[in-house]
């Protein structure tokens, strides 16, 4: 008896389903918020360690409660709305960013069968929802009625739309190989994929370049360093968040990090086997799938932080050049290569 069926057994068909789904949503959203708080702490610690600093170490043991202290501080602050701002849209923008960052998690499979909405078009849903994220940034930039946020919004819009194109083609080559848009099916298609014992499309020499392109595009899509031109503090103060304060600022902050974790999760799901252990060997399956999944997310988050701490920021024309002149042709050629290879081997010439 599944979770939903248990609720339906005493709550009735419709009401039980409603209750079960609400509880499941909370079971994803609340740990996600906790994870965001801890991952911000981890980000600051990793960054500090690479710069030979200590990082947050005052609030709680090892500074573990720093993010919660920051959250409390932000909640007690006054929400300042600039008098020239477009009031409604100004307040709507962080809500959009935060909501979109949360709804994407509905289709992420955390383990075998552990997914809120196991839909056929899961990957397209992800692409659709993540393409909505840009609205929070654009609207905030315009509604602030201030020049730096506006420049930032223009940069963000162009950047996200550009890199979504190559991300789309990377996803197509994965979908071609997995033969499905469903994320759980994509994970299962990677079982014993290479040499009969390595789990993950990333181990496949034909798909590995796409894994690299996806990782870099994910950095650009979430506007993380070295592509954080939307909040380049030396040029744009704080970018689109300049005029925001208190909770409206915190919603941007939380949404941004939730998106970063999502991109790490997507890297794990699409190329490195999701909840499967890296090697198809029976004793490794004794470890619950969700632990493998979280371990992979953390590894990718470490890579993201590592890049943030070491790589200098791109210039905007270089960013556009990388997206349109290198990644787009490369991923397009790769779709061609992958589909050609599959036509020869799987479907017969």
């Amino acid at each position: 008896m599944t979770f939903t069926q248990w609720f339906q057994s005493w709550g009735g068909e419709a009401f039980g389903w409603f209750l079960a789904t609400t509880v499941l949503i909370l079971m994803i959203a609340l740990p996600l918020m906790l994870a965001v708080a801890m991952i911000i702490y981890a980000d600051r610690k990793i960054w500090a360690a690479m710069a030979l600093r200590r990082g947050p170490n005052v609030v709680g043991p090892f500074g573990l409660l720093q993010s919660f202290a920051d959250g409390l501080k932000v909640m007690l602050q006054e929400t300042i709305i600039p008098s020239a701002a477009n009031r409604g849209l100004f307040l709507l923008a962080p809500i959009i960013t935060f909501t979109v960052a949360l709804i994407v998690w509905a289709v992420i499979p955390f383990g075998p069968g552990m997914v809120l909405a196991d839909i056929n078009v899961g990957l397209l849903y992800l692409l659709a929802a993540s393409s909505l994220g840009v609205y929070g940034v654009i609207i905030s930039g315009w509604a602030s009625n201030s020049k730096y946020p506006f420049y930032s919004a223009l940069r963000a819009a162009a950047q996200m739309v550009s890199y979504e194109v190559s991300i789309g083609f990377v996803l197509i080559s994965v979908v071609l190989w997995a033969d499905s848009f469903n994320l759980s099916t994509i994970v299962l298609a990677q079982k014993a994929h290479v040499f009969g014992f390595l789990n993950g499309f990333g181990f496949n020499p034909l798909l590995f370049p796409m894994a690299v392109v996806f990782l870099i595009s994910a950095l650009a899509e979430t506007a993380r360093a070295p592509f954080d031109l939307t909040e380049a503090e030396s040029e744009l103060v704080a970018g689109y968040q300049t005029e925001y304060s208190s909770m409206s600022f915190a919603l941007f902050w939380l949404g941004e990090y939730a998106n970063v974790i999502l991109m790490c999760a997507l890297n794990a799901i699409l190329f490195w086997g999701g909840w499967l252990p890296p090697i198809d060997w029976a004793p490794l399956y004794a470890v619950p799938g969700i632990i493998w999944f979280f371990a992979k997310i953390l590894i990718f988050f470490f890579i993201f932080s590592w890049i943030k701490a070491t790589v200098p920021r791109f210039r905007y024309d270089q960013l556009m050049r990388l997206g349109w002149k290198i990644f787009l042709p490369l991923s397009l050629i790769w779709v061609f290569l992958v589909s050609g290879y599959l036509m020869l081997t799987r479907y017969g010439a």
């Binding site: 839909i119 056929n120 078009v121 397209l124 849903y125 692409l127 659709a128 929802a129 393409s131 909505l132 840009v134 609205y135 654009i138 315009w142 506006f150 919004a153 223009l154 819009a157 162009a158 739309v161 979504e164």
Partner: peptide, 26 residues
């Protein structure tokens, strides 16, 4: 028609309308 729905969001909301907004904002 969930495929059409997703394409509608990806293409029109995610790309075309962004460019609309981009131009109109300026």
């Amino acid at each position: 028609a969930e495929f059409i729905a997703m394409l509608l969001v990806i293409v029109y909301v995610g790309a075309v309308a962004v460019l609309f907004l981009f131009v109109v904002m300026m």
